[in-house]
Simulated assay, not measured.
Amino acid sequence: MSDAPTDRSGSPADDDSAREASTAVSSRTNDGDAPTGDASAESVDARASGSGRARDVVVPIAVYKRVTAYSTLFAVLTVVLGFVLLDAATLQVSLTRRFVVGAFGLVGIVPAETLLTALFSVLGIASIVLGAGVYVLGSRFRAAGMEAENGNSQDDDPEV
């Protein structure tokens, strides 16, 4: 038998595909510039730990300010709303639950208590998850000049 690498079926592995895979790995870059020529363990570790910031989106400062402000505001409001809905699901005497039951009563609908509990619970958890997702996505944006290792532009400021 030869010394050629084999796959699980026992046949020799395709050398061209192995060379293409190693070339693709070695042509990756750390920061989007020209290819480095080798895939070092340090750059792989940096990406795995999140310090490479490979998923960040660099935008103009005006866009960064708007995205950061509005996404944080929306995230906070939806998380607070989620907890209010969870409160309404667990307390039979909450103001939110009374308001919803009263609104349904005005149109002649009397929802079951278990239905309201389930509805408030699902909506509350969904609202919290939505707020967390928006915050995570909003935190991916960076302004030009914020590409420092920890993402804090003040660390590079000589005046501090």
Rank of each mutant, 00 (worst) to 15 (best):
D16I: 04
L137Q: 10
G10Q: 03
I109A: 10
S2P: 10
A39M: 05
G151I: 01
Y64T: 03
A46S: 08
R66T: 14
L130S: 02
R142Q: 11
D14I: 01
G50F: 02
S9Q: 10
R140W: 14
P35M: 06
L91I: 04
G32M: 08
Y135V: 11
L95T: 06
A112I: 06
A112W: 11
V25K: 15
T90V: 13
G108M: 08
G138R: 04
T36H: 09
V25F: 14
T114G: 15
R8C: 15
A4M: 10
V67F: 01
S121R: 04
D56N: 14
S121T: 08
G151A: 04
A144I: 08
G37Y: 03
S139E: 11
I61M: 13
Y64R: 11
E42I: 05
R55C: 11
T68V: 02
T114F: 09
A21H: 11
R98D: 03
T23Y: 10
E147I: 04
I125S: 01
L116R: 02
I125W: 02
T68Q: 07
L91V: 09
A41I: 10
G102Y: 03
V122Q: 07
S49D: 13
D87K: 04
S22A: 14
S22D: 10
R8T: 14
V107W: 05
A144P: 02
I61C: 12
A75G: 05
N30P: 12
V76D: 08
A103F: 08
E149L: 11
V59F: 00
G10T: 06
V101W: 07
D16C: 00
G82K: 01
G82V: 00
A143Y: 07
V93F: 13
D87L: 04
G105F: 07
S43N: 07
V44D: 06
P111T: 12
R98G: 14
T114Y: 09
G133F: 00
A132L: 04
A54Q: 13
A21E: 06
S2I: 06
S26H: 09
V84F: 00
R55H: 11
R28D: 14
A34G: 12
D16V: 01
A144L: 12
N150C: 13
V44A: 07
G32L: 09
V122A: 07
P12N: 06
D45F: 03
Q92D: 15
V100E: 09
A144F: 10
V57K: 08
P60S: 09
G82R: 01
S22P: 00
T6V: 15
A34K: 11
V160H: 08
M146I: 08
E113I: 00
F83W: 00
R47G: 13
L106T: 06
S153W: 12
L137K: 05
L73S: 15
T23I: 09
V44E: 04
V84I: 05
A4E: 14
A39N: 07
A48I: 08
